[in-house]
Simulated assay, not measured.
Amino acid sequence: MLRTSIEAKKRHHYVWANYLTRWGNGTKNVFYTTKTGKIACDSVRAIAADDFFYKTTTLTSENVDIIKAFSRKSPSHLHTQHISYLDDVLKLQRLEAIYRASGKQDQEAEALLHATKCNLMENLHSSHEMKALSILEALANERLDILHDKQHMIEFMMFFGHQITRTKPFRDAVFNAQPRRNNLEIKVSDTIVHAWWFISYMFGMNIGWSLYSSRNEDIHSLLVNDTGLPFITSDHPVVNVHSCVSETDFIAPEYADFYYPISPRIAYIICNSKRFSPGVNYIDKNTVEELNIKIANQAMVHIIGNTTNALLPYKKHLGLRYKKRPLF
């Protein structure tokens, strides 16, 4: 039997399974819409996941150049971080090239290479999840004060940024939106597809840092829902609910109100608008209904709730945004 340290992680969740259990009524089973549009109840392990979703690929020199070009648009300290991560990936790639060139084949070496490709990005996302674990627990219990700690705020915003960019709906929307009108655009588009496992992580870091940097200009609010109509979540749990977001036209929104349900009762929102006041906000049923519709609208396959009845009103809204236009 192979050592545990080199066992490959095959099943990659693009929405954190632990996060989804807050809709499990004390269990790991949640209600969710299936690919066929039915409502099922099963373990969170069964949904918002694909085999080898974050598995790394071999990067060509052209891929690397395009990744670096994207990275140079970042703040300098983030660019340095991106390149450091990229260098680590390329070192591993060079080691594999040396091994392949030797002509030798070793079972344990093959298993180690496979596990490294499967586990590298999955482990990075897991590290952000672990740092956010106690923060989400506190927020679910209305303890907004946990974010008064600067380190907690940095960790939560980094986690938050990746909840936007790491999902399959976001990935597919970006892929669909890439122009392929000339040779350069084709090369960029092909690199985005081939190296999305790295590029999406880089984008998530950038969004997280931007949200942290603007924390004193944006309004950060905890939404408390005591209406009896629970919040739902989805396979793309952070959505822009700002009124400027077009439902029909392919236009990048000028502003963002990033909404993130944390449980059937609690949600977090980061607002460019003045819609909510800083701190704790108790919201009404109409607001819950609106936010649930927007979650359903931007989901791809799964909307997730704590009961069948929590999902039934929103099935008709599921994925409507994709049918109207190709990007969030």
Rank of each mutant, 00 (worst) to 15 (best):
P261K: 03
N297V: 13
S221V: 07
L120N: 02
I266K: 05
L2V: 04
V89E: 12
F276H: 07
T58H: 11
S43D: 04
E108P: 00
A267P: 00
W196I: 00
A109F: 07
W197L: 08
L133Q: 05
N286V: 05
S243L: 09
S74F: 13
I47M: 04
P169H: 04
M121K: 10
L291D: 01
S263Q: 01
N272Q: 07
L222R: 00
E108Q: 07
L327H: 04
F53N: 12
E62Y: 02
E289F: 01
V239W: 02
N225L: 05
L124V: 14
E247I: 14
H236I: 01
I232Y: 09
V288L: 10
A109L: 15
Y212M: 05
L136R: 10
N306A: 11
I67P: 09
R215T: 09
N25H: 08
L229R: 15
A132C: 10
K274M: 07
I219P: 00
D257T: 04
S273C: 02
L113S: 06
L327W: 13
V224T: 10
K187V: 02
G161I: 05
H77Y: 09
F258D: 08
L59H: 04
I67H: 06
P326Y: 05
G161M: 01
R22N: 15
R215N: 13
T80H: 12
Q178K: 07
Q93G: 08
F175P: 08
K315P: 06
R100T: 13
H128T: 11
N225C: 06
N286R: 15
N297Y: 14
Y314C: 05
R180C: 02
I232D: 02
K285Q: 12
Y268E: 03
A173F: 08
W197M: 00
K150G: 05
E254W: 06
I47L: 01
K104S: 13
L113A: 12
E247K: 15
Y268W: 09
S246Q: 03
T36C: 06
Y260Q: 02
I98R: 06
L139P: 03
N216E: 13
F159A: 01
M158C: 10
S76L: 10
D257N: 02
Y255H: 13
H13D: 01
